[in-house]
């Protein structure tokens, strides 16, 4: 077994040697493997996002060293934020930043806020939808709203985690439709799907990519989306909230990348560039964006910062209005 381990090590070293990358003399580039933190369990939207980026960076040699994806779930993302805070000034640690966590760091008052981290870039926008089971009691949004008006707190909506966009979209429904739904928090969208299919909750909040397999099979019906415009493909029959008369209910999630506090500017520049190149590849557009019904929208570090600050303001206001925040 020892000899085998030896071979394995030599093999790994050889492979990493062949990651031939010509380093230009002036610009900074990573000097070792980059730790790429995912603040949630494997298999979710953030995880897929990170793994796609890591894969494309390696395949296209956009980075001389591999991005090693590490899952650090817990506390709706607070654990990863705290971890990033221990890496102050480090150039070899990145994190997938989902708008849910950016908001959550303020709404749930974590020790480390998103503004402590270094914004690097935005890679995609993601929509949200409500899904019901095909043989469930409710088949469309209107009957769902009517039912909850008749019997408040009788309908359970499952979402993953709290103080994030799943939770926000739930609060927005309650607020603007004047209904009283119940929110059930799960740890991941996979758990929400299990609970929905098992009949333990009535409605699930999903990103399109999190439920597309079930939608394609007809097991889950998307009844409404939180998008600005109607989605296409399998989701084309689901109206937006604006279409049914609730213009205020609109939520879009952002998938961005952040570094630890005080990440050196040269490193930020390198990763900005890497992300831009990745989002321009055909494979990214076809195999990631299109397949998962995302919107391709690259933003650089400065724009990402501005976008997030605006978004956080709006969210804090909403959570305050609904009384979740004091």
């Amino acid at each position: 077994m020892k000899r085998f381990l030896g071979f394995l090590l030599v093999g790994i070293m050889t492979v990493s040697l062949f990651g031939g990358y010509v380093q230009s003399a002036s610009k900074w580039a990573p000097e070792r493997e980059i730790e790429f933190v995912v603040p949630s369990s494997p298999g979710g939207g953030s995880d897929l996002n990170a793994r796609t980026i890591a894969d494309l960076a390696q395949k296209n040699k956009f980075s001389p060293y591999a991005l090693m994806v590490v899952n650090k779930p817990g506390g709706s993302g607070a654990v990863s934020f705290a971890y990033m805070n221990t890496k102050k000034g480090d150039s070899h640690t990145l994190m997938v930043l989902h708008s849910g966590q950016a908001i959550g760091s303020y709404v749930n008052n974590w020790n480390v806020k998103v503004s402590d981290l270094t914004y690097i870039g935005t890679v995609a926008f993601d929509e949200l939808t409500l899904g019901v089971k095909k043989d469930g009691k409710y088949k469309d949004i209107k009957s769902l709203l009517a039912a909850v008006k008749r019997q408040p707190r009788s309908i359970k909506i499952g979402g993953s985690q709290r103080g994030n966009s799943d939770h926000l979209s739930f609060e927005l429904i309650n607020k603007y439709t004047g209904s009283e739904f119940t929110y059930v928090m799960f740890n991941s969208s996979g758990e929400v799907m299990s609970a929905l299919l098992g009949g333990h909750v009535d409605v699930g909040i999903f990103n399109p990519m999190e439920c597309i397999g079930q939608v394609a099979a007809g097991e889950v019906i998307p009844i409404v989306t939180f998008a600005k415009n109607r989605l296409t493909g399998l989701f084309k029959d689901a109206p937006t909230f604006a279409e049914i008369g609730y213009e205020e209910i609109q939520v879009t999630e952002v998938r961005a990348i952040a570094g630890p506090p005080n990440m050196p500017a040269a490193a930020v520049e390198f990763y900005e560039d890497m992300l831009r190149k990745i989002t321009e590849t055909d494979e990214w557009k076809q195999n990631y964006i299109e397949k998962n019904l995302l919107v391709n929208n690259y933003l650089n570090a400065a724009d990402t910062k501005e976008y997030h600050e605006k978004m956080i303001d709006v969210n804090i206001k909403t959570f305050k209005e609904v009384g979740y925040l004091k």
């Binding site: 298999g43 995880d47 897929l48 793994r51 996979g190 397999g213 079930q214 394609a216 097991e219």
Partner: peptide, 19 residues
């Protein structure tokens, strides 16, 4: 199995009842 699910997506398959 969650990591494997991520793998399925990355290999271009669509995990779900139709698999």
């Amino acid at each position: 199995t969650a990591v494997l699910l991520g793998g399925l997506m990355m290999w271009g398959l669509r995990p779900g009842p139709l698999l």
